[in-house]
Amino acid sequence: MNLDSKDIEKIAHLARLTIDKANIPTYIKNLNNILNLVEKINANDTRDIMPMSHPIDTNQRLREDEISEIDQRENFQTIAPQTKNGVYLVPQVIKLNTP
């Protein structure tokens, strides 16, 4: 597998990252080197091997359904880039249809 500049731009968009166009050749080189390294896993036969997603084999813990967190909205929003009336502000997503 060899990534080209189109792949790099696509991956950057999927990852929601702007990357400097001038750096694309470096990304191509480095990401392909990394992929060449990781593709060594394909040399091994892993049929019938269970995937290991977690080092300690435990079940998801259950707890009593009781309140454990208090409302800290104001506290958390003091570090937000932009808020208004208790909500986080982002550029408009839905366009209003004006008649």
Binding site: A12, V38, I41, N42, I49, P51
Partner: peptide, 25 residues
């Protein structure tokens, strides 16, 4: 970017699932 690629449609089995199997080994 490597992670996004490894998890993207069509590559999950080739990379992430395979890596988790190798992790077991």
């Amino acid at each position: 970017m490597i992670g996004t690629y490894a998890l993207s449609a069509g590559y999950y089995d080739t990379y992430y699932l395979k890596a988790q199997q190798c992790r077991h080994l």
